[in-house]
Every structure is written in structure tokens, then in C-alpha cells.
């Protein structure tokens, strides 16, 4: 950082003769861009070639579905509360299970979601995690509201992220 601020402070009077002439500097710049032209490219040709994100990636939030077929979510509403974009709506209801509360309705409006991951961070049950799914396209507003049917994801598909969270959260 110190270096940058120094170079920012450089005024015209600080320049050497050759820098003032500017032509050698242009040549340097041209050399740099030319070097880049022959370097390997970073582009991924998307539909054919897909980016598989690392576990630290925050894709669309999903609900964890246990192997027993039950969701972990207890509908505490903290994700809904913390969501800065008001994307999450939860309606709790009572169930006979040991954890007496479950989400009767759990909706994420993907048009509102900003992928900040606060819902995941605040979740006391590790029930909502950020997946690797970044392919989100809808043709109308209604489709953008993901209900439990779309959100529930088997825990086996989310192992990466859950491990990452346990390690770094």
C-alpha cells in the first residue's frame, strides 16, 4: 500500500528525462500488452466448459436435507431476520418430531438474494448453506421465488461446504 501511495504522489517534476519524452514509456507499455497477447488465455467457454467452484464459493443458498429425509431447519427465522435484502420468508409450524418446530413455508426470493451468506453464518442449525449453484435464470418473477421443493438439497451434495464452514467459520 505504501508503495502505491508513493507512486500516486509522483508529480511531473519527479519524472526523469526519458519518462518525460514518453516514447520509451509507450514502448514499455506496448511491450507489456504484446507479452499478454501471447500468454495463455483465462477464458472458460461457459456452456461447454463449466466452472466448478471451490468450497469457499457462495452460490445460491440451499436448505440441508438430512439422510433421514428431514430438513435440518427449525424455522427460527434468524436467516430471514439477518437477510439484508429481505429475500427470505419463513413460516414456522409445529411438528411431532423432537425439534418441535419446522418450516411450513421457506421461500427465498432469488431476485432479492445478494449471495452475502449471512443466512448461512447466522444459522444455528447449519441448515442453510451456500451451494455451488450459480446457474440461475428465470423468465418471470414468480419463478424466482424458490420454495422448499427447490431449496432442499441432500446433505451428501453439500459435504464440501459444510466441511469448509466447520473449518473456517
Amino acid at each position: 500500500m505504501a508503495q502505491t501511495s508513493d507512486s500516486l504522489k509522483k508529480r511531473k517534476k519527479d519524472l526523469t528525462f526519458w519518462q518525460k519524452i514518453y516514447i520509451p514509456e509507450i514502448a514499455k507499455g506496448l511491450a507489456l500488452t504484446f507479452k499478454n497477447m501471447i500468454r495463455p488465455k483465462f477464458t472458460m467457454e461457459y456452456p461447454e466448459e463449466k466452472f466448478i467452484p471451490p468450497p469457499s464459493y457462495r452460490g445460491r443458498p440451499v436448505l440441508v436435507l438430512e439422510e433421514t429425509g428431514e430438513e435440518r431447519c427449525v424455522a427460527c427465522g434468524l436467516c430471514s431476520r439477518v437477510c439484508p435484502a429481505l429475500a427470505i420468508e419463513v413460516q414456522a409450524a409445529e411438528t411431532e418430531r423432537e425439534k418441535e418446530r419446522y418450516p411450513q413455508k421457506f421461500e427465498i426470493n432469488m431476485l432479492r438474494c445478494i449471495f452475502c451468506g449471512l443466512c448461512e453464518e447466522v444459522c444455528p442449525e447449519e441448515a442453510i448453506v451456500m451451494s455451488k449453484d450459480y446457474e440461475l435464470a428465470f423468465t418471470n418473477r414468480e419463478d424466482a421465488i424458490y420454495g422448499k421443493d427447490k431449496l432442499l438439497t441432500p446433505v451428501s451434495q453439500l459435504k464440501d461446504r459444510i466441511e469448509f464452514l466447520r473449518k473456517y467459520k
Binding site: T33, N36, M37, I38, P40, K41, F42, T43
Partner: peptide
């Protein structure tokens, strides 16, 4: 050429 200079295709 713009793409190449920026490591794109």
C-alpha cells in the same frame, strides 16, 4: 486483439 491483450479469447 483487445481480447488477446486482456488474456481473453
Amino acid at each position: 486483439i483487445a481480447a488477446w491483450a486482456q488474456n481473453r479469447i
